[in-house]
Design a binder for these strands. Structure first.
Lengths: 263, 263
DNA sequence: CCCTTTTGTCTGCTATACCGGACACACTGT
DNA sequence: ACAGTGTGTCCGGTATAGCAGACAAAAGGG
């Protein structure tokens, strides 16, 4: 039907070229990561716009490998045990995440506050590990969700060492708009980044969430570039001296993890 | 060299039909899981008998998706951040692992002993989570490593409910040989399994490791089949009454997690 | 220095993986 | 009973993904 003369158009409108199996795999995994819950194959086909017949085939193969698992008798699928093993191997190879996570657990235990290990993935920010504190205060952020860098205190620290031009190139304009609609001025943000770098820590209040303050300290590699942050998520009205005390522990913790990276 | 007239032979010896991308992906991930360290692409091509040109393509795609990462400037690759996020979502979806892990942490804290959450993957046993105790006693086992079932106390509990024939079919003969060379008699092992099932707990001493005793209690699903165990790893010379006390906590903990699975 | 090995990229051929669509079956509600 | 919806399987055609092989460039290594 689609004849010779509109080939170019076809490409533009419907990128309906037959997809590669690997691309399907990536789409599936990415979808599951984002939605964080099991889904039926038919449903999934609609959501990622893939033909059902292909998905049955691909998911069958992934299930066989243990990368996916059939969750219930309605045939819903989700991540399988294999990914747990992959991640375990990954952690073994990454002293950063392993040590950082231990430190975060320790901090959460000794202070009772919610602590996190945060890092960048591409041009987004994510919480790699979260350890809830014993306090009643509920936090909103979830592990693994990708968040615009300007929304976070940690994001400001993680950009330390990048040039202004690099930062401008990295962060898409829409990421400067906060969840409540406010906009962060790029100049202000760049200033924050320089500031965070100079001080060696960052604090933000009521940024992504109205009642939350975030304290962050950097973890740096052997060349002093920030590779992660550890941070506390606390009620905005936490007393000054308590905040100072927490910040001190955070900086010490960040230094400890950084030291382990060098050794 | 392989000429026209031996086509049939070709098929038999070397199943050299062009491989699918997905299969390559699974092979790559499985290889990395087993070897647990970064590898160059050329090297990898030899090890899994795949053409280099294809691997460059596939690994490029997986790297783009964050499933793999380039580790050093020599171009070696290993698991990437994405698998960590996948695993995190997986753990969230598994009440067993989530609750079990919490209970293990609680037990390790209140008793000061090293506690573990263990389960089966295929015909092997693995530690899904380990929480070191505050005691000086160092344990050897590591999370995520696959271990022969007969080497462990937990393994005996996890087979409860299986018939003798099923057990014989499941466990490869070489798994009855301990790290120090001793062999476990199949009959003795089967007896241990029945015994563990009847008592509702298991104890082994100096099995995988000379100076270690392992106490284990089952976590069962709604149909009373064991799906995991929680256990303590303690010095072999721990006094009897202390062991009894720990065992009691363990059984209570296992029951608690089992209850959560039902609800 | 030359010689060997490896690495990353590119190209054209063709076996085949993916797709569309059809089919049987199981539910559900009316 | 019957239409409507969703699930799991199968099949044939064709766009294309994967392969072999060639290549330059870099990296050892003697």
């Amino acid at each position: 039907m689609t004849s010779q003369h509109d080939g170019a158009f076809d490409r533009m409108d419907q990128v309906q070229a037959r997809a590669r199996g690997i691309d399907r795999v990536v789409e599936i995994l990415e979808f599951l990561r984002a939605s964080r819950r099991p889904i039926g194959i038919g449903d999934l086909a609609k959501r990622i716009a893939a033909p059902r017949s292909s998905l049955y085939e691909i998911i069958g193969r992934l299930t066989e490998a243990g990368i996916l698992e059939t969750v219930d008798q309605e045939g819903r699928v989700f991540f399988g045990r294999a990914v747990y093993l992959y991640a375990d191997a990954y952690l073994d190879s990454q002293p950063l995440v392993r040590n950082g996570r231990d430190e975060v657990i320790r901090l959460a235990e000794t202070t009772g506050e919610t602590a996190q290990l945060c890092m960048l993935i591409g041009n987004k920010y994510t919480v790699a590990h979260m350890q809830p504190g014993s306090n009643l205060f509920r936090i909103s952020s979830e592990t693994g969700i990708l968040v615009p860098i300007p929304w976070t205190a940690s994001g400001r620290l993680l950009l330390a060492g990048m040039s202004e031009a690099q930062i401008r190139a990295l962060i898409p304009p829409e990421d400067y708009r906060l969840p409540d609609g406010r906009r962060i001025e790029i100049e202000d943000f760049l200033h924050d980044v320089r500031d965070a770098h100079a001080r060696g820590f960052a604090v933000t209040t009521a940024l992504a969430d109205e009642f939350t303050t975030c304290l962050a300290a950097p973890v740096v590699d052997a060349t002093d570039r920030p590779v992660a942050t550890i941070c506390f998520v606390i009620p905005a009205r936490t007393p000054e001296d308590r905040q100072a005390e927490l910040m001190e522990k955070l900086i010490a913790g960040g230094r400890a993890v950084s030291r382990q990276l060098r050794g």
